[in-house]
Each structure stands twice: as structure tokens, then as C-alpha cells.
Amino acid sequence: MNARWPGRLRVGLTLLVLLVALCGAGPLALPRLPGTDPAHAALLPPGTRVIVTTWSDGRVLLEPGPAAPAAATSIEPGARIVSTGHFTFWLGSDRYGRDLLRELLEGGRISLMIAASSLLLALILGVGTGIVAGTSGRLLDTLLMRLVDALLAFPVLFLMILIVAVFRPSAAMLVAVLGATSWMTLARLVRGQVLSLRSRPFVLASRAAGSRWHQVWRLHYLPHLTGPVAQDAALRMGDLVLAEATLSYLGLGVPPSIPTWGSLVAQGHKVLVDGWWLATFPGVAIATLVIALALIGDGIHETVRRLE
């Protein structure tokens, strides 16, 4: 990486890449625990190592400790051990005996995908509206900006709840709601930039020299828009991660059968006393992601400032 990049940007990007890689590839790389009897694996604390024995009648038993498998007396006659192995619950297990690490990585993949898709939607809506408002006539500009004002007047969480309550929540619906409620400040930002660039000397000079409109856009507008938009996008993504987590925590996000970091925290809170780890680790994951994005946003701001 370039040495001129601010430290914050490097730290943030490293964390983000690490999280994306872990959530993207992690569930594939993890050893899979065969279908087990939840009674033996529920609410195991982090780091618990168990012996897995698979029996010829299809049952899988988990026993704690590194000792040899228990005597076969508890097993029905005729059944024998097919295989034995070890499994470590690095982050513990939940009420149903599921490995929290796997749940965390799979939930993270969904949380990341929802946040990224809704960011993309917000970027398209925000940048599009901003450019249209900044370049069109006064009437359309005024109308669009009043619409932005009105939408910004809603408390975002309330607006999300209103839409989620009217329509049935699904993953696609959630992306639409999150994207449709977070493009307004971007539109304002882009419009402001376009308006201020319009009368800057280099743009006027370029136009006077006979540049076509797409040349002016490519050479002058877009480079000046990239920095501020990228900074806003990084911070916006952090907000979206938090918003998705909050809605899922409240049970108003994706259907409960799909794990996300927010719903994992919610499930962890149901067994707060018996399983502190269940709510703690997903929360740490959310905080790490949001902080990484904030660092990236700060870093981009710093880089743009240095370039100018």
C-alpha cells in the first residue's frame, strides 16, 4: 500500500478486508459438525472441546473433555462406533447446540450483503438525484430538494418501522427500505458539489475551450465528486450496518430463520445469564465493522484534504 495513505485508512481497510474474507470464506473452511443431539451441546462456553462419536445407527454424541469416549453401555445393543473425532466450540454454542463461530460468520455474510446492497441502492438514488437536481432547471431542483427535506424530517428508525409494518419484511424488502431511507444526505452533498463546481475557473475554462459535456464531467466533475462521495459512503455503510442490526434485533428485520448479527444479539439476550458469549461476540463483530468503516471514512477525508 502507498505510504502516503493515512494510518487510519490502512487500519480500517485491513479490518474491513479481514471481516469480509472471514465471513465470505469462513463458513466453507470451518469443519462442519454433523447433526448432533442439542441436549449434549447446548450452551457450551467458548473454547469447549468435545469428542464427537458417530454411531452405526446414525446418532452423533458429544462428550466433554479430551478423555476417551464413554463406555458403550448407554448405547443400544447392536450399535457400534463408526468414527470418533474432536470439535472445538471456539466461541461456544447456542441453545440448540449450534456452533456460534459458524453462526457468526454466516450471519456476518448476510449482514454485510444487506448493508452493501442497500448502500449501492442509496448511492444510485443519492448521486442520481444530486446530479439531476444540480444540473436541471430551478423548478425540478426545488421540487427534488423539498422532497429531500421532507424525507429527512422523518426519524429514520420510525420511517423504517412504518414501512416494515405496512409491507411484509423480507431480505429484499429490508434492502429497499434501508436504501430508500438513506440517500437524502448524499443527494444534498452531490448537488452542492455540482453547483459549486459549475462556476469554478477550471470548469469554465474547459467549457470555454470547447470541451464536450462528457469531457467536462469525466475530467472535472467526477474526480471532485469521488472523494466526498466515498467518504460519505463509508460512514453511511456503518450507519446501515447499525440500522440493519437494530431492526433485526427488534425482530423487524429479515425473517428470524435467517441469522444476522443483530438477530444473534437478540437471541443471545434471551439467555443472557446462562450464555454471556452469545450476545457478546456478535456485538463485538458489529462494533469492529462499524469502527473500521468510520476509520475508512476519516481516512478518505484526510486523503482528499491532503490532495487539495
Binding site: A245, G268, L272, G283, I286
Partner: peptide
Amino acid sequence: LGVYGMPTFWLAGLAILLFSV
């Protein structure tokens, strides 16, 4: 920065665990 990144519902759960439980 840390508090900004932590979801309030998560912070609340930790606080309940510590101060109430």
C-alpha cells in the same frame, strides 16, 4: 470511536449483565 461503533442494544445487554445480574 468505540461507543460510536457499539450498538446501543448490545451495550445495554452488557450493562444489564454487569449491574443487574
